[in-house]
Structure formats: structure tokens, C-alpha cells
Amino acid sequence: MALNYRLPFVTATAVEVVDLVKSYGSTTAVDGLSLTVETGSITAILGPNAAGKTTTIETCEGYRKPTSGSVRVLGLDPVTDHARLAPRVGVMLQTGGAWSAARAVEMLRYVASLHAHPLSVDALVERLGLGSCGRTPYRRLSGGEQQRLGLALSVIGRPELLFLDEPTAGLDPQARRGCWDLIGDLSAAGVTVVLSTHYMEEAERLASEVYIIDAGRVVTAGSPGDLMAAGAGGSMTFSAPRGLDTVDLAAALPPDCAVSEGPPGRYTVSGQVSPHTLSTLTRWCAEREVMPGQLSIEQHTLEDVFLALTGKELR
């Protein structure tokens, strides 16, 4: 989509992190991490707790100085060019960020007044369902309401680049979907989004590019589709008469597929599960007048990919 706002120049790369290392004393939180965020994309940094997500994002926001490596945001240095970047970049912190006595909408109006062309406060309040708690002091808001207010504060100034640190942590499923919709709409409107999450589903649903990180390093990166494909497919199981020629079936299927008969009459095809694999299987059965009953297909999720790569559960 064409960007219908003017900038001095639009670079194709919104964020460029090269070999970032960040140590706190003897703890190395980020350990040689590189990532590239294309302008207009939604990029997810996915990883378990303490993987280094917040450290990476806050280094991009200019809050922390790299121990080594380089970070460029919109072509600028997040620390030394902070004043020029601040109006252009929206930031949602993982926690806090508001006066405990400030009312939700009052806080939003205040931050709006710091910007030249803020969003309509009323429309954003309506969109994020903050109306019912608009007069509630921040300290009395529920965790989910604080989270939604944090998202609202980050977008109110109409930034071109948005950093969201675990934007939907602690939200109920409905509120989470509402946030996903807003993030999707922001992206469609031309905002570049970088978000961290430990929810697989969030990365799968939103991101065009996912960086899976663990212990401060990138474990793997790619589009959710690529990652799942590379994560070695999944499996198909079906029922049929006992004693089918599994060797012949395996020969018909793509080379990386394995076929086995588990309990007699119950077959499992494991490996790359693609439309091609499926059609080959059904054609093979049709040629033998065999009906593959109770056919079920299981594709690996990013969650499985993560587990396979790190040996760890995400949460």
C-alpha cells in the first residue's frame, strides 16, 4: 500500500539491529542479536521470559545503550538522535508509565496534547473500550485496562513506527482480539510495528516476520509460514484395512515422508504435510479402492517449532 504521508525520505528498513550485545554486570541479556524490520511490516520478537525481548526493544527505543553492536531506527541513532525520533516513534512499555492518580482518559488527553496531529481521543477510547473506565484513576484500573491504556498512549500521537512490549499480556481473549484488530488496522494504514510476545498465536496471527529468540540470541527467523514449513511439517493419520503396503505408499509420497502402521489398520504419514502430500495419498488410496477413513491432518505450530529448536516450552 502506498504511504499517503510525507517524510523527508522513506527508507525501506525501519529498524536495523546488528550484532547487539547488552550485558548487565555478569548477565548477558542480549548476546549478538541481529534483526531487520522492513518499513510497513509487523515484526514479532517471540521468546520465553528472560529471552531478552525487553532489552532489545528498549535499546531500539533509546532507553539502554548497547554494550556492543549497532542499532539504527528510521536511519537514526536511538540515543543521540532521540529528540528527532521521539515524535515519530510510539512506545508501549511492558508495565507502568502513568501517574497513579491520573484518570485514564485524562492521561490520554495529556499525551495527545504533546503531539501535533493526535488521533481523536474519543474515537480511540471507544475503539479500545476504555469508555467505562475513563474516569478511573490509573492505580484502580484492572491489569487489562492498564494494558489497553498503554496501547492507546503509544498510538495517540500517530507514530510511523510503533514498539509494543508484550501488548496483550494479561488480556482476556476478547480484549486481545480487539488489540490484534487495532494493530492490524494500524499496519494497514502504514504504521511499521515491532512487537514482543510470548504468545505463539499472536506472532502467527499478526506478524509478517517472526524472530524467535532465546537466551539473547536469534534461534530462527522468517515468516510464520516459512517457519512452520521449515519446522518439518506434521503428520496425517487415517484408518484403512489392515496390511496396506506401506513401503509402496512411502515410495509414492515425497521423499521425506515416512509411513507406518501403528495399531493394525491405523496408519501415520509423518514428514512434510502439504497439499501435494495429501493429494498423493488420496490418489494412491483411490487407485486401490481404499477409503482413508478418519483422516486427520496435524500441522506443526510455531509452538512446536520453538520446542524443537530450544527444547523449552514458551511459557
Partner: peptide, 29 residues
């Protein structure tokens, strides 16, 4: 309800406006 136009339009308010807005907020608190 005003339309929610999410297209980027970054920019700072004039410094004087920001200072006054901040002073008002702190005074209310």
C-alpha cells in the same frame, strides 16, 4: 464519533503548549 484515522502523522506540539499541558496535569494531580 470522529473518525479514527490511523495513518501516520507524527509531530510534536509547540513547546509552549507542551509545557502548559504538563503544568496543568501536575497541578491537577
Amino acid at each position: 464519533m470522529p473518525r479514527l484515522d490511523l495513518t501516520p502523522a507524527p509531530g510534536s506540539a509547540p513547546a509552549v503548549k507542551m509545557v502548559v499541558a504538563h503544568a496543568l496535569m501536575e497541578t491537577k494531580l
